[in-house]
Design a protein around this nucleic acid. Structure first.
Lengths: 165, 165
DNA sequence: TCCGATACCGTTATATCATTACATATCGAT
DNA sequence: ATCGATATGTAATGATATAACGGTATCGGA
C-alpha cells in the first residue's frame, strides 16, 4: 500500500510552519501552471485558512484579515474563498459552514473529511474505494454523480487516548 | 437482493398522498411507541416537509405554517424540526440547509442522500456497504465514527432522460 | 505605448439561516 | 385540583452569505 498523499491527523508536535509553507508553495505552483492569479489578498486568506488544522469560519477570517489593517467586508473573504475552492486549494465543510486547506491540491479528489468533535481538527480521508462504491450504488439508480459531500464526525485517535470516555 | 426499504426517486406519476399518509402514519406509530408527543404543530410541520420530495427550507415552512393562520416565528419551526429529527422522522441536508422527510423512520440508518441538481428532488441511498467501508477506513486512523454526512449531488435518471445534455 | 476588455476589489445594503432568552400555555401524573 | 414538566409564543439578535454597483489594476493586442 502506497503512502497516502492526503493528510492524516497531524502529530502533536509537528512543525506547522512546514504545513503552511508547503501549502503556499503548492498553491503558487498550481496557480502559475493554470494561469490563475494568486493575488496577495487570496494568498493571505489561504495562509489564514492554514493557521491550524481546525476549520476556519468566514467571519473569523474576516476579522483576522482586518487585524491591524482596515476592516474588510464579507464579500472580500467570500470571493477569496470562492477562488481558492475553484482552484482546489480549499475545501468547504458543509456540516460546519467552515473551510479547510487542501493538503493535496495537485491530486484532484473528492474531499472526504474526518472531523474530531473534541479537538475540532479535520483530516482528509483517502478512500477511493468508497468513492467507487458510492458511484456504483448511485449508478444503479441511474444517478449521474457530480459532487460528493462526505463529512464524518467523531473522535480522533489522540483525543480518544487522552480521554477515553 | 432484498427490496430496499429506503426511497428511490419516486416515479413520475406516483400518488403522493400515499407517501404523505404513510409517513404520517409511521410517525404517529413511532411516537406512540416511544412516548414522544407528536403535537398538532409538529404533525403539521412534518406534513409540510412531505409536501414533495424536494427538500424544504425552514423559512418556507414558516411561511406555509402561517398561511391563513397568524404568522409564526423561526423558533416555532426550528423546534418542530429539532423534535422531528430527534425522532428520526426528518433528516437535515447540510449541503442545502434544508430538510427532507425520512421514508424509513423505523429502520435506524445514517442518511445518505442523492440530490438531483436539475429537479431538486432528493432520494435516500441504501448503501450499508458504504457505511461499513467508511467505518473501516476511519477505524484505520483510530477514528471513532459518530455521525455521517453523506450527500451526493448529481442528475437523477428521469432528468438525464428528459435532457441528456 | 496606448487602449479596451476582463478580472479584481471596496463598499453598502440586504438576504438567508439559526439561536437565545424569557414569558405563557398546556399536558399529564399525582 | 395542583404541580412540575413539556411545549409554544414572542422579541431580539447572532451567524452565514449574496446582490448590486462602481472604481481600479492587469493583461493582451493594436
Amino acid at each position: 500500500m502506497s503512502e497516502s498523499v492526503l493528510m492524516a491527523f497531524p502529530a502533536e508536535g509537528h512543525d506547522h510552519r512546514d504545513c503552511v509553507a508547503t501549502a503556499l508553495a503548492a498553491a503558487e505552483r498550481l496557480c502559475r501552471e493554470q494561469g490563475a492569479r494568486l493575488t496577495p489578498q487570496r494568498r493571505r486568506v489561504l495562509e489564514l485558512v492554514w493557521r491550524g488544522h481546525r476549520p476556519a469560519k468566514a467571519y473569523e477570517l474576516m476579522q483576522a484579515l482586518a487585524e491591524g489593517e482596515r476592516p474588510v467586508a464579507p464579500p472580500t473573504v467570500y470571493r477569496a474563498l470562492d477562488f481558492l475552492m475553484e482552484a482546489g486549494l480549499v475545501h468547504r465543510l458543509a456540516s460546519l459552514n467552515a473551510f479547510v486547506g487542501c493538503a493535496a491540491p495537485e491530486h484532484p479528489h473528492a474531499g472526504h473529511f474526518l472531523i474530531c468533535t473534541r479537538c475540532e481538527r479535520v483530516a482528509e480521508l483517502d478512500a477511493p474505494d468508497v468513492d467507487e462504491l458510492l458511484g456504483e450504488r448511485a449508478a444503479e439508480q441511474g444517478f449521474a454523480l457530480e459532487h460528493e459531500t462526505i463529512e464524518l464526525a467523531g473522535v480522533c485517535a489522540a483525543c480518544r487516548q487522552s480521554q477515553p470516555a
